[in-house]
Amino acid sequence: MTCNRKPILSFLRREHGAATVETVIWLPFFIAAFGFMVDLAMIFNGQAKVLRVLQDVNREYSVGNIASTADTEKQVLAELSKMEIWPSAASTTQVAGNIRSTVVIPTRQLTITHFFGAFASLEVDVTADMTVEYFEG
């Protein structure tokens, strides 16, 4: 029985699969980086949506379409619940002709992958200010 070593040695010296091995090694890092970017983008997107809601509701209060700060808070919570965002805190105050609404949202509600534990413990504070435009008299 003769053993021809030439094909075996030729196979071992080939470098055609080197790129595949490197890809398999780096792929988890690229997937993790992509997931991180997606979660971060979703947090910023959620923050922008909440800010828009706060600005719209503050505007309604500022022109007199909403009667009180308590009604403003209720309206903010109602609008956010339509987007399935449940804030851990919401407040509206009026001081010296300025309306300020603040909402605190856990980031775990805004992320998609929930892969990064650091995002689970963070909260996003969103605040909108508006000047009162109506005067009772």
Rank of each mutant, 00 (worst) to 15 (best):
A41E: 11
V63K: 01
L54E: 07
A33R: 00
Q47C: 12
R52I: 14
R59I: 10
F29E: 01
I43E: 08
A48L: 09
F36W: 06
M42I: 10
K49I: 15
F44W: 07
F34I: 13
L40S: 09
Y61A: 15
M37H: 09
G64M: 03
G35M: 10
I43K: 01
G64A: 04
L40V: 12
G64T: 08
E60W: 01
L40R: 08
F29Q: 02
N58L: 07
V38Q: 06
L40I: 12
E60Y: 07
F30G: 05
N58E: 12
V53N: 00
N45Y: 12
F30N: 02
F44R: 02
L51V: 08
Y61Q: 15
Q47F: 10
I43H: 04
D39K: 05
E60N: 10
F34Y: 11
S62W: 05
N65K: 10
V50P: 08
A41S: 08
D39M: 00
R52M: 14
G46K: 00
F34N: 11
V53A: 05
I31M: 01
L54H: 04
A48I: 04
G64K: 04
S62I: 06
L54M: 02
A33L: 08
A33V: 03
E60M: 11
L51Y: 07
Q47Y: 10
L51F: 08
F44K: 05
N58D: 12
G46T: 01
G64W: 03
K49R: 11
Q47A: 14
D56A: 15
F29V: 08
A32S: 07
F29I: 06
A48G: 12
